[in-house]
């Protein structure tokens, strides 16, 4: 009996009834968008889609189209005439083949090096370290992301310099540093991209319950068996996620190669040296890392690891 008489009273108290008094432009717009879901979606996505479409995909399409054009050998002017010559050249000339294979090899080496370092570090951080030590290491790992790219590459150039810090450090052991070359390039790239591997591996390690390691040991496994049969399978998605970054970033790099690579030619340096002389050839060569990365992503997807990204 009492309830129906009280309710209208409460409503007519302080707050105005919804939809009756407010009529500013913002309110009108909100009301309009509320009633029209499609308009709402358009307003939401126009800008990001334009950004993606024009700047990302558009530029890639341009690159791809350019790859089928040719240049005037004397003036280096681009002639927009369809030809497959550029692709035939990079697929048949041995120097290009070797450069592509070398680059893929370097990217794989960088990826493996990062993974091998990330595994014990991730274990220590996730399972052994105190919270304080964990924070210190987390900062340490992500430190390379904070400094400018050129600064980091340049510091490695100084490190590997002939008679530089590394040579000086190794001298008492009767050794010298590797000098500028493929080894220095792999080390530098691994340093640059390590955070992209270490962070996912560490966070995946944190998600593995401790007692799985206890259980493995309890059932008779020694440490290495546990790593092989429990840790690595459970960390596989993290390794793949990390490797997508380390692999594709290494594949595309050319500044590090120029600074510490010595005479080592990679896809990036070949593109860089052709970009003014023969842009269509550079464009054709530029599609190689894209194709390789797409293939890599396809394989990663098959393994089911991309679901975790």
């Amino acid at each position: 009996m009492a309830a129906p008489t009280i309710e209208p009273e409460a409503e007519s108290g302080t707050a105005p009834a919804p939809g009756s008094t407010r009529g500013g432009l913002g309110d009108k717009l909100s009301r309009l968008l509320y009633a029209r879901p499609k308009l709402r979606l358009t307003a939401l996505l126009t800008l990001p889609l334009a950004w993606l479409g024009v700047l990302y995909i558009g530029s890639l399409i341009l690159l791809f189209i350019t790859a089928f054009w040719t240049t005037d050998t004397f003036t280096s002017k681009v002639i927009p005439a369809f030809t497959l010559e550029n692709f035939i050249e990079i697929l048949t000339v041995q120097a290009y083949q070797l450069t592509a294979l070398r680059t893929i090899g370097i990217a794989l080496a960088v990826t493996v090096l990062c993974a091998v370092l990330a595994l014990p570090l991730g274990f220590y951080m996730a399972k052994v370290a105190s919270p304080r030590m964990r924070a210190v290491l987390a900062i340490g790992i992500t430190l390379p992301l904070w400094a400018g790219y050129l600064v980091k590459v340049f510091s490695w150039r100084i490190t590997f310099m002939s008679g530089g810090p590394l040579d000086w450090l190794l001298a008492p052991l009767g050794m010298t540093g590797p000098g500028y070359g493929t080894t220095a390039l792999v080390i530098t790239l691994a340093y640059l991209w390590f955070p992209y591997m270490a962070v996912p591996v560490y966070s995946a390690f944190r998600q593995i319950p401790d007692n799985l390691f206890d259980a493995s040991s309890d059932l008779g496994a020694k440490a290495w068996s546990t790593v092989r049969t429990v840790a690595i399978p459970l960390l596989k998605p993290a390794f793949i996620a990390g490797s997508i970054f380390t692999f594709s970033l290494s594949l595309g790099d050319y500044i590090a190669a120029q600074f510490v690579g010595g005479k080592t030619q990679v896809i990036g340096t070949v593109i860089a040296s052709n970009i003014n002389l023969n842009p269509p050839l550079a464009a054709a060569f530029g599609t190689v890392p894209i194709v390789v990365v797409v293939l890599y992503l396809f394989l990663a997807r098959k393994s089911g690891a991309l679901k975790q990204l």
């Binding site: 007692n211 799985l212 259980a215 493995s216 040991s217 309890d218 008779g220 020694k222």
Partner: peptide, 16 residues
């Protein structure tokens, strides 16, 4: 643990 002839059933099972 792998040198001891005992096995454990864990509180939250610890199945792989």
């Amino acid at each position: 643990p792998f040198e001891r002839d005992v096995n454990t059933v864990f509180q939250d099972y610890a199945l792989f």
